[in-house]
Design a binder for these strands. Structure first.
Lengths: 309, 309
DNA sequence: ATCATGCATAAGGGAGACTTATGCATGAGT
DNA sequence: ACTCATGCATAAGTCTCCCTTATGCATGAT
């Protein structure tokens, strides 16, 4: 005998609209339905309640006492619902959450994000650091920048920066062994994270046999920045992506002894977002901006279109 | 570009339930749907919103930040809705509104309603006077008692009291002409509302020709009580329904000079209510009570069943 | 008196809500 | 470690019931 206290929601929705307009026809317009549909829903509601909520008069309807009682509360509740969804939409439209891995964030994004902020003062930007495991935009962020091997295929992907790498070190360290003249000279110096599998790849390209480093613990991914810090401090030779160390190279904090640059074809830095965000203004703005910025940096990126991979 | 701020209500409803249970399956149970149906509705919502509201984890789901934000408000709004409908149901269940015409109310109901009230202390009873034009229960009342000619066929009808009538007057008035011995004697006295069409009917039954009263203005229906007052005051002869004047006849305030009682076949006092009220507890209680009371008064009423006419 | 407005209702169609069935991922249990 | 149980996602198909179309009716306006 105890049933759901809530009548069918579609009927409640119809009632809410009708009780505001005091017209089935106008409510139908508002709801994108016909007058007959509204009439039907109100009948459903009244049948369920067991009493009429409107008095049908000639050319107009009026709320019954009980209908009036209900209407004020139902209208209020729907008003709350509308505010809730309007608010969340507003928040969603104006808050851009960028998931970004540490290297890209510190080596590139941080210095330029301010420009984007200035160009788009209506957007509130939040960066959340992501390790390279969860590169998916999973509801906690709108867009993700990651450097990883297994790009998620269910997200829209834009490759940004290829995973190029080459050894780098502080000039004083090079001088300490009388300068670096050939690749093999590097082996005279401490190797920062010798477990990094980029090393054998680069030595191979440089024409040297696999140096076969001891199995040191590796902390490669996501910590290129840490390796760089040690190199800048003169603690050893790191294998880094030159794109991210242009300023250090220019200022002389790091030197790149060889033009030999190898590429890791399985990896890249890329930008990704769920397909439904394609039409999102804030995501488009950010995507287009980052592409433009990277082109200024001399990267050859495909014209931005939805299909860009 | 501006769309309805409110996502499809069915999706909102599903979201509300899921966010309370944090389970699609449980929400499905609550809504009387399958888990798949809920999953579908949540997808509809998320597609519409453009962002996920739940994070799907292994054997559970969690609200995203935005989902959390929404949930609190949506749950609140639905709680308001539920209260509103629960309250109105409560009010509807415990308040019995009786529309009653003046004659029946004053001549019969008033004296006995107290008993019903005592027998049903959980019901709050309200009597609203109705003229005999709007005998329909139109949302402002649960049940109607009226004396009229055109019983509304779309309502459930119970005949209560036949429209019997016979002349009545104060004994002093009768004595003023030396007593009433035959129907024609009445014509020597003032006739209260001679336009009342009951007069010719009664005189016909009494075997007299149509007295052919002048065309006095009539205020018959609904004012039998007023006519009676004038008769009791000795101002004339009224044609009344004896059932309603038993006490006056017993106490001698009125006398009924003849046993000749005519009946108006087109009219009766009856009780009516919309068909959907058949299953209403309060309406059944009142209907059964009034039938029982009238039987005590010696009326031969059909056994109460839904079909009783 | 005629027309316009607004709701009710019947009949019918169709959209989309729902079910069934299945897969997959993960955590629990042994 | 292997198996089982749980819970959500998804595809396909069904069917409900919501909605539209068409019409009627009552009433107020012109």
């Amino acid at each position: 005998m105890s049933y759901d206290p809530l009548p069918p929601v579609l009927a409640v929705r119809a009632f809410e609209s009708v009780s505001r307009h005091l017209s089935f026809t106008k409510a139908g317009d508002e709801l994108g339905k016909t007058q007959a549909a509204v009439s039907y829903q109100i009948k459903v509601l009244e049948d369920r309640l067991g009493f009429p909520v409107f008095v049908r008069k000639a050319r107009k309807i009026e709320l019954t006492d009980k209908g009036m009682n209900l209407a004020s509360k139902v209208i209020g509740a729907f008003s709350d619902l509308r505010s809730a969804f309007a608010e969340i939409r507003e928040e969603n439209d104006t808050q851009l959450v960028i998931g970004c891995n540490a290297t890209f964030a510190s080596r590139w994004l941080a210095a330029r994000l301010f420009d984007f902020q200035i160009a788009n003062p209506d957007l509130a930007i939040r960066i959340i650091p992501t390790d390279n495991k969860d590169q998916y935009s999973r509801g906690d962020r709108d867009i993700t920048i990651s450097g990883c091997y297994d790009p998620p295929s269910d997200n829209v992907l834009h490759s940004l920066i290829p995973a190029d790498f080459t050894p780098m070190l502080h000039p004083s360290l090079a001088e300490s062994i009388g300068g670096i003249n050939e690749p093999a000279d590097l082996l005279k110096l401490p190797i920062i994270d010798p477990a990094d599998h980029w090393w054998p790849l680069w030595f191979a390209k440089a024409g040297l046999p696999d140096p076969d480093f001891a199995n040191w613990p590796s902390s490669r991914m996501g910590s290129q920045g840490l390796e760089a810090s040690r190199a800048i401090a003169g603690k050893g030779v790191a294998i880094l992506t030159p794109f991210f160390y242009r300023t250090e190279l220019e200022s002389g904090q790091l030197i790149q002894p060889f033009d030999i640059v190898e590429n890791d074809p399985g990896m890249a830095w890329h930008l990704s977002y769920p397909p439904e965000n394609r039409s999102s203004r804030k995501v488009r703005l950010f995507r287009d901006w980052i592409f433009a910025e990277l082109r200024k940096d001399g990267l050859d990126l495909p014209q931005v279109g939805d299909k860009a991979a």
